[in-house]
Write a protein that binds this DNA or RNA. Structure first.
Lengths: 208, 208
DNA sequence: CGAGAATATAGACAACATACTCACATTTTT
DNA sequence: AAAAATGTGAGTATGTTGTCTATATTCTCG
C-alpha cells in the first residue's frame, strides 16, 4: 500500500537518488570488479576499491553496508552479463558446430574485460547469507543452457545432466586457463575448444 | 670445500635435526595444506596454521622465515605428489581408453585428500621470488605428460601443443568443479570424463 | 650417570593493515 | 535560504605478521 520501495535493505544502505550518486555507485562497482579481478579476493580491500573508484572510503560505506554486499553487487552484475551472452549464443536451431563456435566466442567475450573475475567470484569470494539463492539460480540457469544444447545435439539420451555438467566445467576450465595466461584471443585455442565440444557431444557413446 | 650444506637458506630458517622437530615441521606443512584447502588463501593465517598443527607461532617461524616460504613448502610437496601420480598413469603402451581411465583415476585420487588445494595453490596463493622457476618446471613437466599422450594417440600431428593444453585444462576444470561439489567419486562423472578425453583425442580433426 | 651444550617450544609484544564509523563539509533540490 | 542528499577522511577496534626472550627438552661426552 505504501510507496515504500521493496528493494532489499541489506544490499544498500541508502538508495542513490541523484545522478551524481548513481555514478558514484557505478564507479565503485566497476572499480571493485577491477580490483577483484587483478588482485584476487585477498587483495580486495575496501580502501583500495574506494581509491580506485576515486571516492572516499566514507562514500563507499554510504551505499554498501559492508564488504560482502559490495562483492554481492559485483557478482550480480557480472553474472547477469555472462548469462545474457550465453543465452543468446544458445538459442535457435543451429548445427552443432555453429552452436559451439558461438558459445566459445561468447564465453571469450564475456571474459575479455575482467579475465579472472569469473573464477574469483566463483571460487575465492565468499557468498553471503542472502546470496545463496541468487547464486544457485544463476548456476541452474547457466547449466540449463548446456543441458538444452546437449539434449538437442546428442544421440544418446542417458546422462544428459552429467554430460552437461562435464561439458560446462571443461569449457570453463579451458577458458579460465587461457585467461590466466592472457591467451584468450589465440585463434588456435578457440578452434580446439570448438573441436573438443563437437567431439564430445557428437562422438560420446560411439567407441564404448 | 667447507662442510656447509648447500640447501637454500630462504626456504627454512633452521634445519630440523631431531626427530621431534622434523615431526613439527611435517605437522605444520600438513596443517597448512588443510587450512589452505578449507579456508583459501585469504583465510590462511600463520596463527591458524600453528593452532591447527598444535604448535606455537614461535615454532612455526623457527622453521619458516615467512608465510610465503611456508606456502612454498606446501606447494612443493603437493605438486610432487600430483606429478608422480600423473607420471605413473601415463607411462607404458596402453590403449587410449585405458590411459584415459588411469589418468582420471589418478587425478581424482590426487585431489581426494585436499579437494581444493590444487586450485588454491595455482590461482590464489602468490608465488614468491624464487619459486617461479620451480613452478614453471612443474607446469612444464605436467604438460609434457599430456603432450606425450596426445602425440601417441592422435591421428593428426598439427597443434599437438595446443591440444595438450586444452585437454589438460579441460580435465582440470572438470576435476576442480567436481571437487567443489564433493562429487569427486561419482562414477558417472568419471565415466563421462574418460569419454570426453577419448572423444577429443581420437575424434579431433574428423568432422572439420 | 649427569652436567653443560645444542636444540626445540612457548607466547607476549611491536609494527602494521584492514573494516567500518562519525562528525562535519559541500552540493543539489525545493 | 532551508532542507535533503552526497561526499570526506581522520579515527577506532580488531586482526595479522613476524620478533624476542624465557623456558623446556634432548644430545654429547667425561
Amino acid at each position: 500500500m505504501s510507496t515504500r520501495i521493496a528493494k532489499p535493505r541489506s544490499r544498500m544502505r541508502k538508495q542513490p537518488r541523484q545522478a551524481r550518486s548513481r555514478a558514484t555507485v557505478e564507479a565503485i562497482i566497476e572499480a571493485g570488479a577491477h580490483v577483484l579481478s587483478t588482485l584476487g579476493w585477498a587483495g580486495f580491500t575496501t580502501n583500495k576499491v574506494a581509491d580506485a573508484a576515486g571516492v572516499s572510503i566514507g562514500s563507499l560505506y554510504q551505499y554498501f553496508p559492508d564488504k560482502l554486499s559490495l562483492v554481492e553487487a559485483i557478482r550480480r552484475r557480472h553474472f547477469d552479463q555472462v548469462l545474457s551472452v550465453i543465452a543468446e549464443s544458445a538459442e535457435g536451431d543451429k548445427p552443432l558446430k555453429r552452436f559451439a563456435q558461438e558459445l566459445v566466442r561468447g564465453m571469450i567475450d564475456a571474459h575479455s574485460i575482467h579475465p579472472t573475475l569469473h573464477q574469483v567470484l566463483l571460487d575465492e569470494a565468499p557468498g553471503d547469507r542472502g546470496s545463496r539463492a541468487a547464486h544457485a539460480s544463476f548456476q541452474s540457469r547457466y547449466l540449463d543452457h548446456y543441458t538444452a544444447a546437449v539434449a538437442q545435439y546428442r544421440r544418446r539420451r542417458k546422462d544428459n545432466e552429467t554430460v552437461a555438467r562435464v561439458l560446462s566445467s571443461a569449457v570453463e576450465g579451458v577458458i579460465h586457463n587461457a585467461a590466466r595466461r592472457d591467451m584468450l584471443d589465440a585463434p588456435d585455442l578457440q578452434k580446439q575448444l570448438v573441436e573438443l565440444i563437437c567431439a564430445y557431444v557428437s562422438g560420446s557413446g560411439r567407441s564404448a
